[in-house]
Nucleic acid binder design. Structure first.
Lengths: 345, 345
DNA sequence: TTGAAAGCGGTACCAG
DNA sequence: CTGGTACCGCTTTCAA
């Protein structure tokens, strides 16, 4: 039988109420009594019964704010599903999610929503932050006000957030290079098409790719790194130009959006089977291109897990005061080729 | 506020006890009253508070039996970790796991352990069954005695088990072929090394591989399908023989164990960089060979998830009477190459 | 600063 | 077959 607060109370010659107040630092307990209680609890290895505490606090509701982008609907819908699944598993704890979505990375609205949530008295925040000074300071301030923050999918260093849950962009860039090397027998002439060199995540994917190729001494030649602004038309035109200019190109590496544009250009020049194409993400259209053999492999970041894991970490922190045991939680890097694209598990 | 059994009791003019008995089919309720209660509950969309029921049943302990192989320690340790994590998440429900491990697929001991568990009064069974008539009948019998059975990692068709949680061996064979085709530009001459053609899972991997190559019209030539009995020495000798016999071989496909033997033979002939090798599993040694470039890719089956998912399904069934909503739960098929082998998340 | 006690929602036993 | 009731372990309010 597990230890109960009742048992601790008896051993410490106090009431259950006092035990509860002491162990949760709710205040109003004399330091000596508190210390005595904590000591006994530690010795016995006391872990509170979560079912009982959930039940006792049913009237209370705790709100967790969520601020994520809304573009690339499918992507963030997936993340939301993960968040909602975690919420469901914790349904008896009366946790309410307040989800706000901004179009693109929008500092102004992120700040606005954070303040709105603060007024509502949120108990924790999950955010995919824009990496700016203002947001960073806001997160620091929340943390100092005892409101835990977890960054999700994008991070801000030194913002004092509880932890980060997301992708390792650098490593996924390396993985893309590893795949390309396997496919092209360690020798390729390629163009890199990135959304914007200013996007940290995308530039990490480029950097990881290049460093891996160098480190492994692959025989590679990057003819160009071009920006498509994550736009399909831009992407289409640039790809067309590149493909015409470099006749012996044998690979394309796409780090962001604009995949449709790339594919359209490839098909127009009837090169879709000749050029090795590696992309990121598992948007339905991307997967279609993998299935029809236009894209050779796409590297995925388990966005669903990101939502699920981050929400669980937040809930456990708020409810059980359980600290995350890592600073960064990286979700797995999945390689999807034609054969292992499956209906979701 | 969520619906409570109290509210239903009032609406149905009965006591909470009767509501509980009716909704859980515990018997001792007249059909009319039971129907009335169920109707009201359904209309209100009643879902019992799991925290409360966990709390109420703290005294009761429910035992779930687990019977899995013990060979390839690392593999099943991983599965056990998943099982234990699920147990921890349900720790307040007083669930006890009774784990038995058999060496190899051992019908005699599986039966013995099942019977032992029955005597102890287990409430559910998770098993990686040997596919024999006796075990099949035993599972049917358990199910008929209201003891739910979930098959884990290996399945028996028509055994009336609640569901199967595991790997899609056929599809993972296809995935292996897909990778090999990418690496060898859709043209390869290979030998297949399998543990035993009698092992269902391994023969499915072979079948999936071959069918995929045919379907996609790859230019392939299988010089031999040989059995190594999952034994390293056997594996070593056979690989050596094959490599000497077929000088223009460019690929090896290993569906089971004996990977060390294959690698030893390859290294001895200094062919480790020249021949494309695809294996299964993420045993530490296998991953080492991937990292050192001897194995090009290894296909993994997320054994941890198998343990976690199956245990959760079992617990939810026993506690909340929640039926699995699929007959087969396939875990993801992961492709691991040098770059996306990461310390576990 | 502390104790006592009333719940939270469901379960199970006993009495009728 | 049904109602009443005493828990399960923790939280919170009220009173001292």
């Amino acid at each position: 039988m597990a230890i109960t607060s009742e048992q601790i109370a008896k051993l410490a010659n106090v009431s259950r109420g006092t035990v509860d107040r002491a162990l949760h630092n709710r205040g109003g307990v004399s330091p000596e009594v508190s210390a005595r209680i904590k000591k006994i609890a530690a010795e016995l290895g006391y872990t509170p019964n979560t079912a009982a505490s959930a039940l006792a606090r049913t009237k209370k509701r705790t709100t967790v704010g969520i601020i994520i982008p809304a573009n690339q609907n499918y992507f963030f819908d997936n993340m939301k599903s993960g968040l909602l699944l975690a919420q469901e598993e914790f349904s008896n704890y009366g946790i309410q999610l307040e989800i706000f979505q901004t179009y693109g990375l929008d500092e102004y609205n992120q700040l606005k929503y954070i303040e709105e949530l603060e007024k509502k008295g949120m108990n924790g925040l999950l955010i995919s932050p824009v990496n700016t000074e203002k947001i960073k300071n806001k997160i620091i301030q929340l943390t100092e006000n005892k409101i835990p923050v977890i960054t999700l999918n994008s991070d801000i260093e030194k913002s004092k957030r509880l932890c980060y849950v997301g992708h390792d962009y650098y490593q996924s860039g390396k993985t893309a290079e590893g795949m390309m090397a396997l496919i092209n027998n360690r020798k390729f002439k390629l163009a890199i098409i990135t959304g914007s060199t200013k996007s940290l995540s995308q530039s990490q994917r480029v950097e990881g790719f290049i460093n891996n190729a160098k480190k492994r001494s692959h025989d590679f030649d990057i003819v160009e790194i071009c920006e498509n602004n994550d736009d399909d038309i831009d992407s289409y035109l640039q790809t067309l130009r590149i493909l015409k200019e470099y006749k012996d190109l044998n690979a394309l590496y796409i780090t962001g959006s604009g995949i449709y544009g790339v594919v359209k250009a490839l098909k127009e020049l009837k090169l879709e089977r000749k050029i090795c194409v590696i992309t990121f993400g598992d948007l339905p259209r991307t997967l279609e291109y993998v299935i029809e053999d236009t894209i050779d492999a796409t590297i995925c970041q388990n966005v669903f897990d990101q939502g699920y894991v981050s929400a669980k970490l937040m809930f456990n922190y708020i409810i059980k005061n359980e600290y995350p045991n890592k600073d960064k939680y990286y979700t797995k890097i999945d390689i999807r080729i034609k054969e292992n694209i499956l209906p979701n598990y």
